[in-house]
Design a protein around this nucleic acid. Structure first.
Length: 255
DNA sequence: ATGGCTACTCCTAGTAGA
């Protein structure tokens, strides 16, 4: 089974590239983030024509998540359902081929100490509560997406530059560890220990070409998924060429 | 020193991303 996660930075602006990548990589399921479109305007027809089922949770202009699969996703849940008054479309969950998928687009946080940073930390605490209430560590569970947090020194291109900055601050790393403490492992680190495995590069300053990236897109998996883990790969090729997303897809293969 | 790109929107200039 092949599961992909990709922040596409607008599914409409990127439609041809997204469909082209899906056709070539041919995952069983892909979790997309930053679709940036209300559900009514999602390009369902183009996906259906290419043989994909799609479950979406979107909003105008910002955020938005979608699960795209060869089989119909079941038991779809949109949002954390915890009564928090915010209406940001940042989480969708569904089951595909017996695996429970939680697709997340964690808030960026903007700047350490800002209101958006506080919102990010609060959102991550809510995500842990969502897992506690809706999932079990004994089940095949994959929590994946754009976490907007680089977990450790290996995951930033310049440790000194990034130390204490938003995306790499201690409180963010601790909030991510608390999510994982539900009983989830960072799948990439189960297979690769080396530094410099990045998933995002700034559009500016030729960052991709210069290797100035961060690893902020993750697959967190329960033990039953880890036991089936064959490979975790970052498709850097998808960051190249005309009008790329600023994120590369990450692909998990299970036995 | 700053910003350097991209996508979005009933403000095509201002906001947001990371």
């Amino acid at each position: 089974m092949k599961i992909a996660s990709w922040n596409v930075n607008s599914v409409r602006a990127r439609l041809d590239r997204v469909l082209g990548w899906l056709a070539a990589a041919n995952p069983d399921v892909a979790c997309l983030q930053e679709t940036k479109v209300v559900d009514a305007d999602f390009p369902f027809d183009a996906f259906r024509a290419a043989g994909w089922h799609v479950a979406v949770h979107g909003q105008k202009t910002y955020n938005g998540v979608a699960i795209v699969a060869r089989e119909e996703p079941t038991d779809v849940v949109r949002g954390m359902g915890d009564g928090d008054p915010d209406a940001e479309a940042r989480l969708i969950a569904a089951t595909v081929a017996g695996v429970r998928l939680v697709d997340v687009y964690v808030p960026n946080g903007q700047e350490v100490g800002s209101p958006k940073y506080a919102y990010k930390l609060r959102w991550l605490a809510r995500l842990r509560a969502f897992l506690d209430s809706n999932c079990k560590v004994e089940q095949p569970l994959v929590v994946c997406g754009d976490f907007n947090i680089a977990p450790d020194d290996r995951d930033v291109w310049d440790v000194e530059k990034w130390r204490g900055q938003c995306l790499f601050s201690d409180a963010e790393k601790e909030a991510l560890r608390h999510v994982a403490a539900f009983g989830l492992a960072d799948a990439l680190r189960l297979r690769h220990a080396e530094a410099g495995l990045f998933t995002w590069w700034d559009y500016r300053m030729g960052a991709f070409h210069r290797g100035w990236g961060l690893r902020i897109d993750h697959f967190l998996v329960t033990p039953s998924v880890a036991a089936r883990l064959r490979s975790v790969t970052i498709d850097r090729e998808a960051r190249k060429g005309e009008q790329p997303s600023d994120h590369a897809p990450v692909v998990l293969e299970l036995d």
